[in-house]
């Protein structure tokens, strides 16, 4: 059998060099980021601080797929770290002119990028870019196909921790289109690494991966049973195209079966929180009364996203500096 290559997201000191996926990372690697994120909030005001950690670094947000929320929070995070920020919407530029993906990347690298924050429609795209960047350049996966969205999962863990204390011992339900969701994959990995007591996924078979046991989750097709006694409910966005491939009859039927209403939420623990990576479809996967209700932490997730993304970038650049230091001493 062939040996797999060394984990490409780690450097020679086994520390994060890129963040491509949470799979294979250790608990302390996740908590380091979450702990650091907390320090970016001003304890007096609760506002996010501006820090000079990445002064002189150039970060390019390269989005091959449109995004508003993720790209904006990355941009704010980068500016709070005092980095120089460049935004590129490649869906409408270079590759349309026939330039290969790698040529695009290498050109941007030649312009002096220190980090690429990349979103791409293909699973594995972040691994692909990481394999081909120069040694000093870092790749942060901002969503690749159905594979991973690690910064989203980390901000979700941060939010859970903030509201529920330790993730250990929690029961978490993720509801909706697990099959096509990079967010769900990364959340499941993060929850497993942090030792959540039980991870449930709720939805019809047409929106589930074929081997859920490989992900370490329990599958429920019945929403009421799935929500029984959980501490956290994570709703996923339902894409319109799921109706065309005969995966679902209608949004209406989906909402009737899996939409989160106050009545359904009553099945969960009384202090359960409700999360959603956004953007939400009111009346499709979540009722407005729940989305805007007292147990919803959806907008808090957005704010936390900035701090967590700051922490991810700070950790990656600090690891690089440590490695450089060690190489100089050697």
């Amino acid at each position: 059998m062939r040996l797999t290559e060394p984990d490409i997201q780690l450097n020679a000191q086994k520390k994060l060099r890129h963040l491509l996926t949470l799979e294979g990372l250790k608990e302390h690697q996740l908590t380091e980021i979450l702990d650091l994120a907390e320090t970016f909030f001003d304890p007096a005001t609760g506002d996010l601080k501006k820090v000079p950690l990445l002064r002189g670094k150039t970060i390019m947000n390269v989005f091959f797929e449109p995004s508003t929320r993720t790209r904006t929070t990355f941009e704010i995070a980068e500016k709070r770290l005092s980095a120089d920020v460049v935004n590129l919407n490649i869906a409408t530029s270079a590759t349309k002119k026939g330039e290969s993906l790698l040529d695009t990347l290498w050109n941007l690298q030649a312009m002096g990028a220190d980090m690429f924050v990349i979103r791409h429609a293909d699973s594995g795209a972040a691994h692909f870019f990481a394999r081909h960047v120069a040694p000093h350049v870092h790749v942060l996966n901002a969503g690749d196909g159905r594979h991973a969205h690690p910064s989203q999962a980390l901000l979700d863990m941060f939010t859970i921790r903030k509201h529920k204390g330790d993730i250990y011992d929690l029961k978490v339900a993720i509801v909706g289109d697990i099959l096509h969701s990079r967010v769900a994959r990364s959340q499941i990995q993060a929850l497993s690494i942090l030792g959540a007591r039980e991870i449930r996924v709720i939805g019809p078979r047409t929106l589930m991966p074929s081997h859920p046991e490989a992900l370490g989750v329990h599958v429920y097709h019945d929403m009421d049973r799935g929500l029984e006694d959980v501490d956290v409910v994570i709703m996923l966005r339902l894409q319109n195209e799921r109706m065309s491939g005969a995966r679902l009859p209608s949004e209406k039927e989906f909402f009737r079966l899996y939409g989160l209403t106050e009545k359904r939420l009553a099945r969960a623990k009384p202090d359960a929180i409700v999360m959603h990576p956004g953007p939400i479809n009111r009346g499709v996967e979540i009722d407005s009364a729940v989305a805007d209700g007292p147990r919803s932490v959806i907008l808090d997730q957005v704010t936390n996203g900035i701090a967590v993304r700051m922490a991810i970038m700070a950790v990656i650049f600090s690891n690089a500096a440590q490695l450089q230091q060690q190489e100089r001493e050697a």
Binding site: G145, H147, S210, H211, A214
Partner: peptide, 15 residues
């Protein structure tokens, strides 16, 4: 292949 690995990697699967 539609199996555990494609499930984990989020690769569109061929059953």
């Amino acid at each position: 292949h539609d199996g555990p690995v494609a499930n984990r990697l989020g690769l569109p699967a061929i059953p």
